[in-house]
Design a protein around this nucleic acid. Structure first.
Lengths: 234, 234
DNA sequence: CGGAACTTTGACACGTCTCAAATGCCGTGG
DNA sequence: CCACGGCATTTGAGACGTGTCAAAGTTCCG
């Protein structure tokens, strides 16, 4: 994991990623001088839950799946990360072991940012610190929303919601299919249900002409309907 | 709500609360000069989901219940806050509407801290900023853990877990009962289940001599057993 | 081309929710 | 101080959603 280690600072999306946008030129150069971009192949693990990490990761290309391991080693996907997102900052800033496992869903290019730089930038630039706070607050709110959903909604409603979220987050390819390849198992581990339930409900959606399926790919045909389902309105 | 508004800075737990511990004397005085302590009665609402808040709240005395409103107005409790905890900082820092409703579970004394002070302190003191980041990261991790639990564990397991959490967080009175009064409905809204399910499982625990019940009060008799249940080990 | 991993379908069991009704508790007002 | 009404708790019965297990079909990739 992590072969092809290079220092190709140019065009690193770290500089334009929302949390880093508050850095001035000098600080950006400091950041660039310490970055290290690595390539990962589909299935590679960036780090595992419980391991110590010494920096955080900014995605340049690819998609990461971030999960916690539950009962019987069953994974619960907490988030998906795409280019521009950063991960690992939580454990770095709290100086704790990683609380999630992070795995590449596709071949990816990821920038490694050593902890010291993060701490230095927080000290130097309070706007950057504020951006980080806002980022974690945003994620916290999303997490709390999902707790509400998973506690109150049916699997069908949650699945509708997740499909909409994937569509908004990852966009669609030229044919209109959502631009992310998730196994049914991954999907079930996001929704918080059994793989078979995801399969059954997806084919219900299909026969109701709400979505179209081609292998792992999903295309939304009736976004309005999906939205109503996700909001428990029939 | 919020009668008895005074400026009794003395002994305000804000100063010793973890996030404020990194302030120097001068900064603490600045903070104190802007605080405003209010009393709230059981059932009072500090603020509602969707409303704009202009500061955050530090609990001196009492317990707050923090919840989101879901389908059919059904509340989902996201957190309970006790003396020393602060709430509302998330919406303040992101400059967004409140994403939760906060209600006093008991008669409480709460310090109001205007937004400007928080922003000023972040600018002046990067350690304070770091503390805030760490706080939100901690809450984020707890939220993610709970997502994993609610997605994978049974109601029985989650209830065991919540009872243990309440015991650790709020301690016990002289008789050994957990020092918090929650209705069965509140409990169900934390665990994410129906009120009747909470009642049934609590009486199971009781007949299995794992807990003792006296009205709303719960006393843990067999902590080890409860821990095993919460970890899906039979 | 072969094997492994993933997907799909069916049958079934079980946990949990819902609804309904009875009981218990508590504060209010007479 | 007691009676009342309202709210919380408890218990039961039944329905429904979801998880589990098993087996067959399909896709993917070396």
């Amino acid at each position: 994991m992590g072969e092809d280690s290079t220092n190709q600072h140019k065009n690193c999306s770290c500089n334009t990623s929302t949390v880093f946008k508050s850095l001035n030129t000098e600080e950006q150069e400091l950041l660039n001088s310490k970055l290290r971009c690595n390539s990962y192949k589909k299935g590679d693990i960036l780090y595992r839950e419980g391991s110590r990490i010494t920096g955080c990761y900014c995605i340049q290309k690819g998609i990461l799946k971030i999960y916690k391991t539950g009962v019987d080693e069953k994974p619960q996907i907490i988030a998906l990360a795409r280019p521009g997102d950063i991960t690992g900052y939580r454990s770095v800033l709290s100086n704790e072991m990683a609380c999630t496992t992070v795995e590449a869903l596709e071949d990816s290019v990821i920038c490694y940012i050593p902890s010291e730089i993060i701490f230095t930038l927080i000290k130097k630039n309070s706007d950057f610190a504020l951006s980080l706070i806002q980022l974690s607050c945003k994620e916290l709110n999303q997490a709390n929303d999902f707790i509400k959903d998973i506690a109150q909604k049916t699997v069908r409603e949650r699945l509708a919601e997740i499909v909409l979220m994937l569509n908004d987050t990852f966009g669609t390819d030229t044919e209109g299919y959502i631009a992310i390849n998730l196994t049914r198992e991954d999907l079930s581990s996001i929704v918080g249900t059994a793989t078979e339930s995801v399969i059954r409900i997806l084919s219900e959606f299909k026969s109701e002409k709400i979505i179209e399926l081609k292998g792992k790919k999903i295309k939304i045909l009736n976004k309005e309907r999906l939205k109503l389902i996700s909001e428990s309105i029939f």
